[in-house]
Design a protein around this nucleic acid. Structure first.
Lengths: 211, 211
DNA sequence: TAAAATTGCTACTACCCAGTAAAAGTAGAG
DNA sequence: CTCTACTTTTACTGGGTAGTAGCAATTTTA
């Protein structure tokens, strides 16, 4: 029996279970926040989806705001991670940009709930939390901007202002979260492909060939 | 004394005053909904801004939802009107598209509050109201799509699928409402100009000159 | 100036929901 | 079997707000 910090038994497994419960709570909360909006969703409704009660949630999350923070943070952090992974792939700016757009578009479609809850509910976040997430987005835009600047130097891209171009591109990607829906007019793959070619046209110099 | 429909006196002026009061209510409501979100804004707060009381608002609007509807509807209707005006201007598809993007971008910046409240709070709308506004947006996308299709036929535009391109373009325009802010890094004019050149690059065939 | 209509406000209700205290239930250790 | 630690629930409070009934003030009409 280890008395380390007052805990006993197989803490490893216990932590996994706790983590699992937290994930499930987050999942159902994100569904409901996405469907009905944050303020219109009662934690009792989230609890009901999980067949538990509200105080159950409160023993895994400090309050409703923390739940919102984790949802918003998750979406943005995932996008940022994917961007950084994609940038690590060797290649020309053109090749890298294609990989970035493809992967980020995919992750946004897969995590649509998280991203769109963030875009819609930013105002409901605790100001400090909002700032932290804005910093992540800023990091995203900066890295994208650096890539565009690199492509501009090599002559691959024709853009006037990399940081403004980065905003249009990250906007185009975010926009997917706001209108895409499963089983809609277009498949995820079509949307991703179209996002790639649209972004490439935005940056390609006049006279360039279609990639 | 005209007993027409139970009204008397100078109904014309009275109606103007009533309309003015409704506009003022809408204006303050849109400010607060924009700053704090719809559900987090109490009608008492709106009343306070106007130096009146809540029942005052209820004598000009049926309920809080009607206020939200008018705000959302206003923003979208304005954009649609501007699009239709712009399409009435004679010219090639290229010229028309430039005019469309310029005017719509401007109207979106001018009416940012209305547009972004709509984008964020669509889920809080009465389903019937939401449908009506979605129809307006759909009309917008269709007209834009027709313009793109026309440009494609004449060879001015190189796009695979006009209706998907229309979504990217209307997304790019809507996106402005979500990140632009007065006194920020870029002026309204810079943003509008950049929107135009970005959209034109999205549709221009390979080998085309910068406009 | 008095009646009638209109306009706005005071004061209230009814409901919803975030958050909590404390009890009940459950499982492992000896 | 029972003590202990942990998990989940029952049952509640407090604060906030949408919406309303009815009164008070003002303006209009005659």
């Amino acid at each position: 029996m280890d008395k380390v910090k007052g805990k006993r038994g197989s803490t490893a497994l216990k932590n996994e279970i706790t983590a699992y419960k937290r994930r499930r709570i987050l999942e159902e909360a994100s569904h409901l926040f996405f469907e009905k909006g944050y303020e219109s969703t009662a934690l009792d409704a989230v609890a009901e989806q999980l067949h538990v009660t509200k105080p159950f949630i409160y023993s895994y999350y400090k309050n409703k705001g923390e739940l919102l923070y984790e949802i918003c943070q998750t979406g943005i952090q995932l996008s940022l991670n994917v961007l950084e992974d994609a940038l690590a792939v060797e290649g020309t700016a053109t090749e890298q940009l294609k990989v970035v757009v493809e992967r980020v578009a995919r992750i946004i479609i897969e995590n649509q709930r998280y991203i769109s809850v963030y875009l819609r509910e930013e105002k409901s976040l605790d100001p400090e939390d909002a700032r932290r997430i804005r910093d992540l987005r800023h990091k995203f835009d900066l890295q994208l901007s650096d890539l565009l600047a690199k492509g501009k130097r090599t002559g691959e891209f024709d853009i006037q202002h990399p940081s403004r171009a980065a905003i249009w591109i990250s906007g185009l990607l975010s926009w997917i979260a706001l209108w895409y829906h499963d089983g809609g007019r277009w498949s995820a793959t079509e949307v991703v492909m179209d996002a790639i070619s649209t972004v490439m046209k935005m940056v390609q110099p006049a006279g360039a060939q279609r990639g």
